[in-house]
Amino acid sequence: MEPARSALSDKFDDDDYPAYSMGRAAEILEVTPAFLRSLGGGKLIEPLRSAGGHRRYSRHQLRLAARARRLVDQGTPLEAACRIIVLEDQLEDALRLNAELRAGCECGSRPPSP
Results as ranks from 00 to 15, higher is better:
residue 37 R to W: 02
residue 38 S to H: 12
residue 38 S to W: 08
residue 39 L to N: 03
residue 39 L to P: 01
residue 39 L to G: 11
residue 39 L to D: 03
residue 39 L to R: 02
residue 40 G to Q: 14
residue 40 G to T: 14
residue 40 G to M: 10
residue 40 G to L: 09
residue 41 G to Q: 13
residue 41 G to P: 00
residue 41 G to S: 05
residue 41 G to K: 06
residue 42 G to Q: 04
residue 42 G to S: 06
residue 42 G to V: 10
residue 42 G to N: 04
residue 42 G to H: 03
residue 42 G to A: 13
residue 43 K to E: 15
residue 43 K to S: 14
residue 43 K to D: 15
residue 44 L to R: 07
residue 44 L to W: 02
residue 44 L to N: 03
residue 44 L to G: 08
residue 44 L to H: 00
residue 44 L to F: 04
residue 45 I to D: 13
residue 45 I to G: 01
residue 45 I to H: 08
residue 45 I to N: 02
residue 46 E to Y: 04
residue 46 E to H: 04
residue 46 E to D: 11
residue 46 E to L: 05
residue 46 E to N: 07
residue 46 E to Q: 06
residue 46 E to F: 08
residue 47 P to W: 08
residue 47 P to Y: 05
residue 47 P to E: 10
residue 48 L to I: 03
residue 48 L to A: 15
residue 48 L to K: 06
residue 48 L to Y: 00
residue 48 L to T: 13
residue 48 L to G: 12
residue 49 R to Y: 02
residue 49 R to F: 09
residue 49 R to C: 06
residue 49 R to V: 09
residue 49 R to H: 12
residue 49 R to W: 01
residue 49 R to K: 12
residue 50 S to F: 11
residue 50 S to A: 14
residue 50 S to Q: 06
residue 50 S to E: 10
residue 51 A to R: 12
residue 51 A to G: 13
residue 52 G to D: 14
residue 52 G to W: 09
residue 52 G to F: 10
residue 52 G to N: 15
residue 52 G to R: 15
residue 53 G to P: 01
residue 53 G to K: 03
residue 54 H to I: 02
residue 54 H to E: 15
residue 54 H to D: 14
residue 55 R to T: 02
residue 55 R to V: 06
residue 55 R to I: 02
residue 56 R to Q: 14
residue 56 R to S: 10
residue 56 R to G: 11
residue 56 R to D: 11
residue 57 Y to Q: 07
residue 57 Y to G: 07
residue 57 Y to N: 05
residue 57 Y to H: 03
residue 57 Y to D: 11
residue 58 S to N: 05
residue 58 S to P: 02
residue 59 R to S: 13
residue 59 R to W: 09
residue 59 R to L: 09
residue 61 Q to R: 00
residue 61 Q to E: 15
residue 61 Q to T: 11
residue 61 Q to S: 04
residue 62 L to Y: 04
residue 62 L to I: 14
residue 62 L to K: 03
residue 62 L to A: 08
residue 63 R to V: 12
residue 63 R to I: 05
residue 63 R to F: 03
residue 64 L to P: 01
residue 64 L to H: 06
residue 64 L to W: 00
residue 64 L to R: 08
residue 64 L to D: 06
residue 65 A to N: 04
residue 65 A to K: 00
residue 66 A to R: 11
residue 66 A to M: 01
residue 66 A to D: 11
residue 67 R to G: 13
residue 67 R to N: 14
residue 67 R to V: 01
residue 67 R to M: 13
residue 67 R to T: 13
residue 68 A to H: 03
residue 68 A to Q: 09
residue 68 A to T: 06
residue 68 A to Y: 05
residue 69 R to A: 06
residue 69 R to L: 09
residue 70 R to I: 07
residue 70 R to W: 02
residue 71 L to V: 09
residue 71 L to T: 08
residue 71 L to M: 09
residue 72 V to C: 12
residue 73 D to G: 07
residue 73 D to C: 00
residue 74 Q to E: 15
residue 74 Q to N: 09
residue 74 Q to L: 11
residue 74 Q to V: 03
residue 75 G to Q: 12
residue 75 G to F: 09
residue 75 G to W: 08
residue 75 G to S: 06
residue 75 G to T: 00
residue 76 T to D: 01
residue 76 T to E: 12
residue 76 T to Q: 04
residue 76 T to Y: 01
residue 77 P to M: 12
